[in-house]
């Protein structure tokens, strides 16, 4: 019985032969300018409906979170300047705010840094959504990405609580929109990849904060970038989900962040839930056996 996928190349592990190199995204938040072009380009290409017209008051983020009708989400975080040294951060030249030298005593705290980062489906090596999907609608592509087959999904919703990142969701509306009632998430532009094209978000990103390419190469690029930032004194720079030994086996879409993942709404130590599934099945088997034995015992003294 196949437990959770464990091979380093998830496409081959799934049964694909002669696969192209595993594809992915490296999102470098240190050069994200928060323009949201990725959100718009994604919606244009994939024909995703508008996802609510509510002002959220979360800095300039009125998108809020990834969901069935939001496959890229740019987070905006405004942080008051903390004292440097110790747990403080080093401002990047391009994101540092200047404080007024003539301001009163509190002026040291008036500067802020404005963090932006474009979130997306992680296309996990060990993908819980794919593991738990009962219809086989969620599938591993030859590029190692994870895609919902719209014509198969019956909207059971199991993938939604299974995802450790809260990415996938069931489209509830608007009425008449495409794919209402079924699970939806980033496809890493499967239809573009097949044509040798770059996914829409990466294509639209004006600063190359979103890089698309072969995952192995992206990991090397990312390692160089984080070292470059450390050399430049940006001690807060760190890679997130780039490690193949983490709880999801590393992500197909990973990130360079300037603060803890939870600051951006990301889980600090995600683990694919199906890692514990064999143990859970054993527990269930024992529980079932106890029920059977208990029921039998209940009839031991029964008189006809």
């Amino acid at each position: 019985m196949q437990r959770w996928s464990s091979a380093p190349d998830p496409a081959t592990d799934t049964g694909w032969r002669d696969t192209p190199a595993r594809k992915g995204f490296f999102t470098d938040s240190s050069i994200c300018i928060g323009c949201k072009a990725c959100e718009v380009a994604c919606k244009e290409w994939n024909g995703i409906p508008e996802d609510g017209l509510e002002m959220l008051g979360m800095s300039y983020d009125n998108t809020g979170a990834l969901g069935a009708s939001t496959w890229r989400h740019v987070a905006f975080i405004e942080q008051p300047r903390r004292p440097t040294g110790g747990g403080g951060f080093t401002p990047l030249p391009m994101v540092a705010a200047t404080s007024d030298q003539n301001s009163p005593a509190s002026a040291a705290e008036t500067g802020i840094r404005w963090l932006m980062s474009s979130d997306v489906c992680k296309h996990c090596t060990h993908a819980a959504c794919l593991d738990v999907c009962p219809t086989g609608s969620l599938m591993r592509t030859e590029f190692g990405t994870v895609v919902v087959q719209d014509d198969i999904c019956n909207g059971c919703g199991y993938c939604i609580p299974a995802c450790p990142f809260g990415v996938i969701d069931r489209r509830d509306g608007p009425a008449g929109a495409r794919n209402v009632g079924i699970a939806q998430k980033c496809t890493l532009c499967y239809d573009r990849l097949g044509e040798g094209m770059t996914p829409a978000c990466a294509q639209a990103c004006p600063t190359k904060s979103i890089l698309y390419g072969d995952l192995e190469e992206l990991r090397i690029t990312a390692q160089h970038r984080v070292e470059e930032l450390h050399t430049a004194g940006v001690a807060d720079a760190r890679l997130y989900l780039a490690d193949p030994n983490d709880g999801i086996g590393g992500a197909g879409a990973f990130f360079l962040l300037l603060d803890d993942p939870e600051v951006y709404g990301l889980p600090p130590d995600p683990v694919v839930t199906t890692r514990d599934l064999p143990a859970m099945w054993r527990t269930a088997a024992i529980a079932g056996a106890i029920l059977l034995a208990g029921a039998a015992a209940a009839f031991v003294r029964a008189r006809p």
């Binding site: 949201k36 959100e39 718009v40 919606k43 508008e50 609510g52 017209l53 002002m55 300039y60 009125n62």
Partner: peptide, 23 residues
Amino acid sequence: LTEHHTAGGMSRWSPYLAELQPE
């Protein structure tokens, strides 16, 4: 705002821009 393309006439009628800056 970055989210606005050119002006209101081109932005407030576009759902993908309107949802980014709804108010």
